[in-house]
Nucleic acid binder design. Sequence first.
DNA 1: TCCCGCTATTTCCATTTATACATAACGGAA
DNA 2: TTCCGTTATGTATAAATGGAAATAGCGGGA
Lengths: 125, 125
Amino acid sequence: MTRTHHQHPRFQLRLVSGKDVVIGPGKADLLDAIGRTGSISSATREMGLSYKKAWQLINTMNEHFAAPVIATVSGGSQRGGAELTDFGHRVLEQYRALQTRLTAENAPETQALLNLLAPSDAPDP
Amino acid sequence: MTRTHHQHPRFQLRLVSGKDVVIGPGKADLLDAIGRTGSISSATREMGLSYKKAWQLINTMNEHFAAPVIATVSGGSQRGGAELTDFGHRVLEQYRALQTRLTAENAPETQALLNLLAPSDAPDP
DNA sequence: TCCCGCTATTTCCATTTATACATAACGGAA
DNA sequence: TTCCGTTATGTATAAATGGAAATAGCGGGA
């Protein structure tokens, strides 16, 4: 799958602990995709990353958060799948809220830094 | 040099454009070190990264910002060196301001997410 | 003129990271 | 019992990243 590259300059937020990224843009998108598609596999196909990588990302989140972010099922009539736990929903919700707040207009420092970019990086056009 | 690993969970901020990180924690620290030490070389020795890597980080910043963040000198009585440009100082200042604002108490969403971490990740002790 | 430490750049190599592929288990349905 | 697509995991390979080392140029001082 072709890599989807956002073009405009943007701020990204990461929660880091030790050497691990607990959650960031990629993991948040993965959680979102799993929630929407109902399985890790379908989420990886949609996002264009390997199942193993996705599993590792999820595993890292589960290692650092107080509870698992997704619940998985093997076999059965639905052939298995995965869904966000209530806890996982809260994690994603809080991350998005923080992300939104950062990019919001009530952060004048955001614009101040964007205005220092070269014109080719199209701060606001 | 041994890698210095901050232990406590923390938020990191990045300004990204296309596939490049315009500025983030590492580049900000590099600018700071160059400003303090007076050369790229001494900054790399202090931080424990290669000159090549540092130069690449600086080059990426210069490619995306509207003006160079450092000014370099080759040869001369001082044997050459580097210093932050006025523009570079502004970039670093604005980044630090944004970073500070993010971690500040006026971001309750920050604590909300930290509180979802496992006890072993020591949210506040 | 030579010397010095720095900038700037290239080449080569080690490390890290990610992918591709293979495999086993799962459990309901046919 | 066989079949299915998924979870979960290991192994081997490819790609990306980073470092070490070499090289050239700089320009003022000795």
